[in-house]
Design a protein around this nucleic acid. Structure first.
Length: 295
DNA sequence: GTCCAGGTCGCGC
DNA sequence: GCGCGACATGGA
């Protein structure tokens, strides 16, 4: 059992579930046990099953990670799991300013300040980029199905239960031919985008994971993200959000419909007017959107 | 059959 | 910069 202390406020269950990402393979929420499950392929190729749960105590929240594997876990493997879980759960992000802004709002926002907002993300930007591409111009149920097929067809199996599979590596995606994508994985016209991205990463022409290191200003980061085929304005801002930059909204049909209903009496408006709604949130606009609700 | 869903690309202007 | 049609897939 690996243990990670998270400082309060931190609402484990809400944080993990507030973003739809929990529904995308190889992640799963096990409701009966309050457990976040994920199949993870470690750097050395070993596939393990993680069961993560949060235990509330006075001083902090203890995250307990149960690792199932086909044998003992080495110290290096433990450290990799620790690092990946910290990243997925965004434990190192400082949300205090967001909470401060929320506390000035009405009581609906009070709960947000109780430790929500650490939206779930994937261990790699490669995985999040593909998942984000799979949310564009489709329905959520199809996104879930697309990602499930990608994992099922290409991911490495968990040895103790081969039906559970890890998210495929760039190499595994790149090695899958167009035919397999067309006949089995069926991402529609996104097949070509996902394949191209994987090929670029494998060829060393695109270092996605370097973008996770906070070394670029948000502006350059966004420009780099939009160079990915299939990533436009919405997807780039969504990836920026996952990377911890919330200053721009990822405006999609879902957000438009929500804002029209809540703020414009159901009437359609421009994206500029949508942005104006969240202007007061400064650097936290996109995060605020996630917790805005119809009264 | 038609429309469209948590958009983006490539084109012409 | 902006407007527009095309785009795979599957459900209503």
């Amino acid at each position: 059992m690996i243990e990670i202390p998270a400082s309060k406020p931190y609402a484990f269950e809400a944080s993990v579930r507030d973003h739809g990402w929990i529904a995308l393979a190889p992640c799963r929420w096990i409701a009966e046990q309050n457990v976040f499950q994920r199949v993870e392929r470690l750097h050395n190729g070993r596939v393990v099953l993680l069961h993560i749960t949060g235990v509330d105590s006075k001083e902090n929240v203890r995250l307990l990670i149960e690792v199932q594997a086909d044998g003992p876990i080495t110290w290096e493997e433990q450290e990799e799991i620790r690092r990946k879980v910290r990243w997925m759960l965004k434990l190192d992000e400082d949300l205090s300013e967001f909470y401060q802004l929320a506390s000035r709002r009405n009581s609906l926002w009070k709960e947000v300040g109780q430790g929500r907002g650490r939206l779930l993300r994937s261990p790699t930007l490669f995985e999040d980029a593909i998942k984000t591409i799979c949310t564009t111009n489709t329905t959520w149920s199809q996104t879930v199905a697309m990602v499930a097929r990608l994992v099922k067809c290409l991911g490495d199996p968990f040895p103790l239960n081969p039906e559970l599979r890890a998210f495929p590596t760039p190499g595994q995606v790149a090695a899958a031919g167009e035919k397999l994508f067309q006949e089995e994985i069926r991402l529609g016209y996104r097949n070509a985008y996902v394949l191209q991205l994987a090929q670029e990463v494998v060829a060393g022409r695109r270092d996605l994971e370097a973008l996770r290191e906070n070394s670029l200003p948000a502006r350059d980061l966004k420009k780099t993200l939009k160079e990915i085929k299939g990533v436009g304005e919405y997807a780039a801002n969504t990836l920026l959000m996952l990377l911890g930059y919330y200053h721009e909204l990822g405006i999609d049909s879902e957000m438009r419909n929500f804002v029209y209903r809540k703020y414009f009496d159901g009437q359609a408006t421009t994206d500029q007017e949508i942005a104006a709604i969240y202007e007061g949130w400064g650097q936290w606009k996109y995060l605020a959107y996630w917790f805005d609700e119809l009264d």
